[in-house]
Write a protein that binds this DNA or RNA. Structure first.
Length: 755
DNA sequence: AGCACGCCGACT
DNA sequence: GTCGGCGTGCTC
């Protein structure tokens, strides 16, 4: 790691310094809101080497810590500040990226240190020290790297500080060593007799046929079909030896040549736009997304720029990587970046930052990668919720589309967002639209009115399945995932039990006589055991059909194998009929798609559930090659009608006014605060430590139960006109989970996709 | 009075 | 993430 410190001699003679930075704000990489960026002085010998984005060692409570310079201050001689101790040149971030990180922190209520970490090398260890001059009684040798914790245990806090001051040790941010792989090398003069050991001979001959410096053990075994045990026998006989070598970054060279359907006129549609460093969303069929990714990447490469292609899931990233490698001109370099890469991820990070990769395809984990020549960001399947981490999990609880838009605006890169059904939130963001391209084919749609029947499957539905299977077509049956927060509707008239204040479907909590219907928006609560307000019927039922149940009933009714495909389970996925959740229609095509309970898609009790349902139905139609059969008790529902007619504009025109009236994004902003702990403690914390501190203009909803009954969790919504305002309030709420929390756990989510 | 412990704010 | 100050409550 290149470093500049008081002990470095490399700085002698550095004279050309223009208005050197002398005082800086440093975000110490400790994952807490409780520690704001702190001010430090830049000592003489480091002036000219510290700027916005520099990685520095700065003292805090006596120890050096790794921090990033997130602000530059006017010099003030009167202030008595601690000195920055070192500069780590290799870890510096671009000033623009630092500004983006600060923005992410401000709108998502994530501590700045956590945001900065996602822009720094993956797995960076900020607490390791290098032993420079060990004292005689130390057990560590010169040059070894030791964690601060270990040093403190052995030396105690005082001697640790003294050791650092005496330069016996120095803070050394430590990246995980590159993944290594085993190579097999043949012994130089071996002329073995293998006798009847055929597998050994085969292995050895394959090895001799390869490069002189050896073959990857994995490749060798794959090429010969031999087992590792055989290879080990060869090693024991001294005929081969193993070598650990660092794995090279998984950066691939494109082979060029393959032209994708539609790529030409996609390039024509994009023509001239990509030079302008502007942002656009683009409504176009899902099948065309790969061609756009290729066109966008090609255009960036032609201008000598880097392209960042973001896709929601690892599987899709790898698939896109394959398409790009086939289609981009020869010599273009392409790399994937996602959590599935394990330790190989660091090498891709470094290659990207060095500008050695032209095209990076990644999941949300790639959204803040430092890329010096970044010219365009393309977000594939823009509305997908996998672009955002759930609070409390790895990654940022902010949609990668939002990060991309901000990054493009700040860094002068173009941004292209792809979806046939873009997020309605984009209407508030000032992002303009490229001319839409409509679906070139649309299935025949059959809407089945289920009012008045108690059946799960209509005759129409079953007949359609039978005839599709008889004609050799495959059938996908799309059900909604069901979980807490399902809504309740009347079996007879289809009316949904709704909140009298907000007119949103009420969510069912609890069971039996204790069951209650609760509004997710305002907390309105009523007993679940009343009859239908529309028709008086007592036949109320929970919407949503469990995938497993649908599968069993279909198997019985159709007498063919029925597979299952959900996020968590996959079995008999090549059966003629497959039941599944949204994953079923994500990347697959079916002759017939059936939706047995469309109401469960569209009548969810939460924010965004209508939009999500619309999108799922739209996607179901896209993936149905010939027919789409939809069962509903609400055949006139605007979202259902619009989705089946591929009428995005119609849906947006109907839905946007509703969002405005409810005070939902893009017209207003909200934050969800989930606090788990005993009810009294939660209520107490909210009333005495959150409500009094709320900024003016931030409203708070009632406390409602959240999640399963088993773990006691409670939820409040904060709402305000400005995103920053509500994020600031969410930051205050996050501190309820600090030390004085008597066991409270707090998760906050600003402008969640789903509430 | 003397000391352990937990809570809490400050740390630059 | 760490430290020290302070109040509480217990022991000598």
């Amino acid at each position: 790691m290149a470093r500049l410190s008081g002990h470095s001699s490399r700085l002698a003679g550095t004279t050309e310094i223009i208005s050197p930075v002398t005082e800086v704000r440093v975000a110490i990489l400790i994952p807490t809101h409780a520690l704001p960026p702190l001010s430090y002085r830049v000592p003489e010998h480091l002036r000219g080497h510290v700027r916005l984005g520099s990685a520095v060692a700065a003292p805090l409570s006596g120890y050096s810590r790794l921090g990033i310079v997130v602000g530059v201050e006017e010099p003030d001689e009167d202030r008595d500040l601690e000195d920055v101790r070192e500069v780590f040149e290799d870890l510096a971030l671009d000033a623009g990226l630092v500004r983006v990180c600060r923005w992410v922190c401000e709108v998502s209520a994530v501590p700045l240190a956590n945001v900065l970490r996602t822009a720094l090398p993956p797995g960076l260890d900020t607490r390791s020290y290098r032993i420079l001059h060990p004292a005689p009684d130390w057990s560590w040798r010169r040059g070894s790297v030791v964690a601060r914790g270990a040093l403190r245990r052995a030396l105690g806090p005082e001697r640790l500080k003294v050791a650092e001051e005496a330069a016996r040790i120095e803070l050394t941010p430590h990246c995980p060593p590159p993944a290594s792989e085993e190579w097999t090398v043949a012994a130089p003069e071996a002329a073995p007799d293998f006798g009847r050991a055929h597998s050994q001979r085969k292995l050895f001959e394959e090895l001799r046929a390869g490069e002189a410096n050896g073959v990857r053990s994995g490749d060798l075994l794959a090429a010969t079909g031999a087992t590792r045990a055989t290879l080990l026998r060869l090693e024991r006989r001294g005929l081969v030896r193993f070598e650990k070598r660092p794995a090279v970054a998984a950066v691939h060279a494109a082979s060029g040549g393959v032209k994708l359907e539609n790529e030409d006129f996609i390039s024509r549609d994009l023509d001239g736009f990509l030079e302008g460093a502007e942002a656009r969303f683009w409504r176009l069929p899902t099948v065309d997304h790969p061609a756009v990714a290729v066109a966008v990447a090609r255009s960036a490469v032609e201008r000598g720029e880097q392209a960042l292609i973001l896709a929601p899931e690892i599987e899709g990233v790898e698939r896109l990587k394959g398409v790009l490698l086939e289609s981009l001109p020869e010599g273009c370099s392409v790399a994937a970046y996602h959590s599935g890469l394990g330790r190989g991820r660091t090498a891709v990070y470094e290659a990207g930052r060095a500008g050695e990769v032209d095209v990076i395809v990644g999941t949300r984990a790639a959204a803040l990668l430092p890329l010096p020549r970044l010219g365009v960001i393309c977000v594939v399947d823009e509305p997908n919720e996998a672009f955002r981490a759930e609070p409390g999990y790895e990654g940022l609880p902010l949609h990668a589309r939002d990060i991309a838009l901000r990054r493009g605006g700040d860094g002068g890169a173009s941004v292209v967002l792809l979806s046939p059904t873009p997020t309605l939130r984009l209407y508030g963001s000032g992002v303009a639209e490229l001319p839409a391209r409509l679906a070139s084919s649309w299935p025949a749609v059959r809407l089945v009115d289920m009012r008045g029947t108690g059946a799960v499957f209509s005759a129409t539905f079953l007949d359609a399945c039978r005839s599709a299977v008889e004609n050799g077509g495959r059938v996908g049956v799309l059900v909604n995932r069901i979980g807490p927060g399902v809504s309740v509707s009347c079996n007879r008239c289809g009316a949904v039990r709704s909140c009298p204040v907000c007119d949103l479907p009420l969510a069912l909590h609890g069971t039996g006589r204790l069951a209650a219907l609760i509004c997710a928006r305002c907390g309105h609560r009523e007993a679940a055991s009343e009859n239908c307000p529309q028709c008086g019927s007592l036949r109320l039922s929970v919407t949503g059909l469990a995938a497993g149940k649908v599968r069993a009933e279909l198997r019985a009714a159709l007498e063919v194998p029925v597979g299952l495909l959900t996020a968590g389970e996959k079995s008999e996925a090549d059966a003629p009929v497959v039941v599944g959740t949204t994953r079923l229609v994500q990347n697959l095509e079916w002759a017939l798609v059936c939706v047995p309970d469309a109401d469960s898609l569209i009548l969810g009790s939460s924010i965004g559930s209508v939009e999500r349902g619309f999108r799922t139905l739209y996607r179901a139609a896209e993936s149905a090659r010939i027919r789409l059969v939809v069962q509903t008790r609400n055949p006139e529902h605007y979202a259902l009608q619009a989705a089946l007619r591929s009428d995005y504009r119609g849906f947006a025109a109907a839905e946007l006014p509703k969002l405005r009236a409810l005070g939902y994004p893009p017209y207003a902003h909200l934050a969800e605060v989930v606090i788990s702990g005993p009810g009294n403690a939660v209520r107490d914390a909210v009333e005495s430590r959150l409500r009094p501190k709320l900024p003016l203009g931030v409203r708070m909803s009632a406390l409602v139960p959240a999640g399963s009954d088993r773990s006691s969790a409670w939820r409040v919504l904060l709402r305000a006109d400005e995103r920053r305002e509500v994020a600031w309030a969410a930051t205050i709420a996050a501190r309820l989970g600090g030390r004085k929390a008597n066991g409270l756990k707090v998760l906050v989510d600003v402008d969640p996709e789903e509430v």
